[in-house]
Simulated scan of single mutants.
Amino acid sequence: MGGFGEGEGELLQLTYPKPLPMRLDRWLVAQRPEQSRARIQKFIEAGYVRVNGVTGRAKTPLRHGDRVEVWMPPPEPLPYLVAQAMPLDVLYEDAHLIVLNKPAGLTVHPAPGNKDGTLVNGLLHHCPDLPGIGGELRPGIVHRLDKDTTGCIVVAKSQEALVNLQVQIQKRIASRDYLGVVHGQPAADHGTVIGAIGRHPADRKKYAVVSDASGRHACTHWQVQERLGDYALLRFKLDTGRTHQIRVHSAHMGHPIVGDPVYSRCRRLPLALPGQALHAVRLGLDHPITRERLVLEAPLPAVFEQLLERLRSRLAKAGS
Score class of each variant (00 low, 15 high):
A111D: 14
P186G: 10
H125V: 09
G132P: 00
R138T: 09
K147A: 03
H190E: 15
G184M: 00
L119A: 13
A213T: 02
S158V: 06
R144T: 12
A188M: 07
K115Q: 10
A202S: 11
I197Y: 10
A187H: 12
L179P: 13
R144G: 06
T150V: 09
R144C: 00
G151E: 10
R176G: 06
K115A: 00
P186S: 04
V209N: 07
Y178N: 02
P201T: 10
V209A: 04
Y207L: 06
W222D: 03
K157S: 01
N101A: 12
P139D: 02
L145Y: 04
A208H: 09
Q159D: 11
G184I: 03
K102M: 09
E226A: 01
P112H: 11
A213C: 04
K205G: 06
L130A: 07
G140I: 05
V142P: 02
G151Y: 06
A104F: 04
Q185C: 09
I169V: 15
H200A: 07
S158G: 05
L130T: 03
P201W: 12
R144K: 08
V167I: 06
H217A: 00
E136T: 10
K147M: 05
G140A: 00
N114R: 14
P128C: 11
I169D: 15
I141Q: 09
D129P: 04
D203A: 01
V142D: 08
L119W: 08
D116W: 00
Q168R: 07
R138E: 11
